[in-house]
Design a protein around this nucleic acid. Structure first.
Length: 278
DNA sequence: AATGCTTTATACT
DNA sequence: AGTATAAAGCATT
């Protein structure tokens, strides 16, 4: 995986796209913005995402996003046909979720052993933390991942920690490589938050939903804003597909790890769809 | 009491 | 018709 090398440049391109995607900037504008020739830009972009910048851009436009928004009814139908406890699919692999017991939540992770490591991904550096019962954190860092480790320890104050690049590295390979192997995730949050996250895994790969649809699924049609904050509290990127929730009108909405990263992931998923359809 | 990965209603170009 | 503001709504700190 050498995509990582270029993520920083891709990232600045995406920043530009994020700021201007509504008006469909030309390739030359984007290339200019990251100080690369149009040609070279296309090349590294293709290398990173597997599709041309133009296609990528189109896939994240207003109309395109809107077209793939699943309404509450559709999602309900989907989860019914696949069974309520159906695992989430991500990059061709399945994720099973479980949440921390109320006791563990109250005691801030007492008795839980966490192994963590820092790794390179197509979306920049990330911190991955694992437990016996599943992955409990997958967070992206723009600069020093050390602060993420600190935040992790603060959150799970009474858990034990051990750095184990080897173990977490294998998981990274599973997620980004081609080893098909089911994954587990361990959720840690308030009742409401867990419900929201559970709802998210029902969004199929390559599809989107809106904050208000999620709110409806929970039976609180007007809680869209609360849903937004709950989603923002999620700390298991990708596995809990919070990047598949966008604004109802097709806007991109916010993202905990940067809007440009959200676009990157969305586009990346789309390109995976195109590259190996079915 | 204030805040946020929203949404809608209203008021203006 | 598009775009800027205001206000409504709700879990969390």
């Amino acid at each position: 995986m050498k995509e990582e090398v270029n993520y920083n440049r891709i990232k600045s391109a995406l920043e530009f796209i994020a700021a201007n995607y509504k008006k469909q900037p030309g390739m030359n504008e984007i290339a200019e913005h990251i100080h690369l020739s149009e040609f070279h830009f296309q090349r590294i972009f293709k290398e990173w995402s597997g599709i041309t910048p133009k296609k990528f851009l189109r896939s994240i436009t207003f109309e395109e996003l809107k077209k793939n928004i699943e309404t509450t009814e559709n999602l309900a139908e989907l989860s019914e046909s696949t069974g309520l406890s159906s695992p989430s699919r991500i990059y061709d692999l399945f994720v099973d979720i479980e949440s921390v017991t109320p006791e563990e939540y109250k005691t801030k992770g007492k008795g839980i052993e966490i192994r963590y490591g820092i790794h390179e991904t197509p979306f920049g550096k990330c911190l991955l933390a694992n437990t016996k019962r599943g992955i409990c954190a997958l967070e992206f860092a723009d600069e020093e991942p050390a602060s993420l480790v600190q935040a992790l320890k603060e959150k799970w104050q009474n858990a034990t920690f051990e750095e184990n690049q080897h173990e977490t590295g294998a998981i990274i390979d599973t997620i980004f490589g081609n080893k098909k192997q089911p994954l587990k995730a361990l959720l840690y949050g308030t009742n409401f938050q867990v419900k929201v996250w559970e709802a998210l895994i029902k969004i199929p790969y390559g599809k989107f939903t809106s904050y208000s649809s999620v709110a409806e699924m929970l039976g609180r049609p007007n809680a869209s804003r609360a849903v937004g904050t709950a989603i923002g509290k999620n700390n298991i990127a990708l596995l809990i597909p919070c990047h598949r929730v966008i604004q109802q009108i097709g806007g991109i909405g916010g993202y905990k790890w940067g809007v440009e990263r959200k676009l990157a992931i969305i586009g990346y998923e789309k390109s995976m769809n195109e590259n190996k359809p079915k």
